[in-house]
Computed example of a mutant assay.
Amino acid sequence: MHVSARADYALRALLAIADTGGGELVKAATLAEVQQIPLSVLHGILLDLRRADLLVSHRGTEGGYSLSRPADQITVGDVLRAVGGTLTTVRGLPAGSAGYQGVATGLRDVWLAVHGAVEQVVDRITLADLLTPEHRPADPAHW
């Protein structure tokens, strides 16, 4: 698994929005400044998150962005898929499409196992978990 800057930015933006408690609209410029994300990059990320039904945009001078559902219903996996597609890749393709012959045949099974392990972690952790320190394990290996 590779975590791109785009995926990191998307998670940081959604966490900042979620941290408002859901009642406050957050402007893209504010997100960019507070999270130190280039505004031009952030606009594309916010569009992807909106298309994935993770964000709602509100127009107008008092507009901004809000979560489309509660933070405890949005997982890290949802966000990663919205901005990056598949969670794990092999040579730029989804792990499931890797094909091998001969002595390397077993590699596909390894990549699928890695993909499954990543899914188990990122599909279990929600934005709310990340915002609530008591929900986080003392050892991150125990998510």
Score class of each variant (00 low, 15 high):
Ala98Thr: 01
Glu24Asn: 12
Arg69Phe: 00
Arg69Glu: 06
Leu131Ser: 08
Ala16Asp: 12
Ile37Gln: 03
Gly21Asn: 08
Tyr9Ile: 01
Ser66His: 00
Leu130Arg: 09
Pro70Arg: 07
Val26Asp: 00
Thr20Glu: 11
Ile37Lys: 03
Met1Tyr: 01
Val79Gln: 00
Ser57Gln: 09
Thr20Gly: 08
Pro94Leu: 01
Ala32Ile: 00
Val41Tyr: 10
Thr132Ala: 11
Leu46Asn: 06
Ala52Pro: 02
Arg81His: 05
Leu112His: 01
Gly77Asn: 05
Ala104Lys: 09
Val122Gly: 05
Arg91Glu: 13
Gln101Arg: 15
Arg108Thr: 09
Leu54Cys: 01
Gly64Ile: 08
Thr126Ala: 08
Leu31Arg: 01
Gly99Asp: 14
His135Asp: 05
Val34Tyr: 11
Gly23Cys: 08
Arg91Asn: 12
Arg50Val: 08
Leu15Pro: 04
Ala7Asp: 07
Pro133Glu: 10
Gly106Ala: 15
Ala7Met: 12
Ile17Tyr: 07
Glu134Arg: 15
Val3Glu: 11
Ala13Gly: 02
Leu31Phe: 08
Ala7Leu: 04
Val79Phe: 00
Asp53Trp: 04
Leu107Ser: 01
Ala10Cys: 05
Arg12Met: 06
Glu33Tyr: 06
Val114Tyr: 03
Asp139Cys: 05
Arg124Gln: 13
Thr105Ser: 10
Ser97Met: 10
Thr30Ser: 15
Leu130Gln: 01
Leu15Ile: 09
Arg50Phe: 02
Leu93Ile: 12
Asp129Glu: 06
Ala13Pro: 02
Ala10Thr: 04
Ala117Val: 03
Ala10Trp: 03
Gly102Cys: 12
Ser40Lys: 12
